[in-house]
Amino acid sequence: MSACVQDAPLPHRPAVRPPAGPGWTGEPLRLAALLAPAAAVFAAFFLLPLVRLILIGAGGTEGWSAYLTTLADPGHLDSLASTLALSAGVTAVTLAVSTVAGLFLVRNRFPGHALLVALLTFPLAFPGVVIGFMVIMLAGRQGLIGSITQALGGGKLVFAYSMAGLFLGYVYFSIPRVILTVMAAAEKLDPRLEEAARSLGAAPWRVVADVILPALKPALISAGALCFATSMGAFGTAFTLATRINVLPMTIYTEFTLQANIAAAAALSVLLGLITWAALAVARSVAGTSVAAAG
């Protein structure tokens, strides 16, 4: 049978071993010495602040139970829940829009294609403040949407200073990165796979479900995780829109600057970090590729 075809056995050759020398045993030590500066920097700028933050969380009058008290606070829980909901919603909408748009941009060439793709990367260059500013210009009291609805006689529609405005801003900010990821992955799709599925009778929607989406899955998971993490931790946009938007980074800011409740702020920070880190870790294990946090 064809499966049994094998190469002819190779002529026997004596195995050659590297001579054991004195240099070999010194290797780990030398490696440690080389790594020492990097380890020192890592400890100074990453581990120490983190440990300090965790300790501050437990540094109040209540000690370690401050973590539990902070978590049990209905206001905090509410803030946590709405941040999670916002981030999940932003991620879902961004993935849906970007997958459709990314596939379209890869599959269709038209005049202005290159310019459009180049423009798409533009929002990546903006800080959160600018995104918030743009949301206000669009959906604020003097915004475009309000003027249009007013002209149409429907009253002034203003939603910039709420969760809806934040949602809009985050989606706007997240879409370019995800589209670019989707496009990079879609370029690598093997068109033969889709043709094979079609030859077997698969309608276009089935080809998308059975061939294209499974192939894009790793890219979608890693892009989605980044989008989620960014939405969880972003601050500038929320701060620009309104201080009363109830998301975790805003709550931390309020606890820290206005209430001077440093222990609670630290505890919430640790919590925020843990959730975001867990989301990335889960994505990493599911996608099987490395997903780096950002934002």
Binding site: D190, R192, A196, S199, G201, V211, P214
Partner: peptide, 15 residues
């Protein structure tokens, strides 16, 4: 998808 043909490619194109 409506011709009922079988295809075999050089690159196998297995899912």
């Amino acid at each position: 998808e409506r011709r009922n043909v079988g295809m075999v490619f050089q690159s196998y194109a297995l899912f």
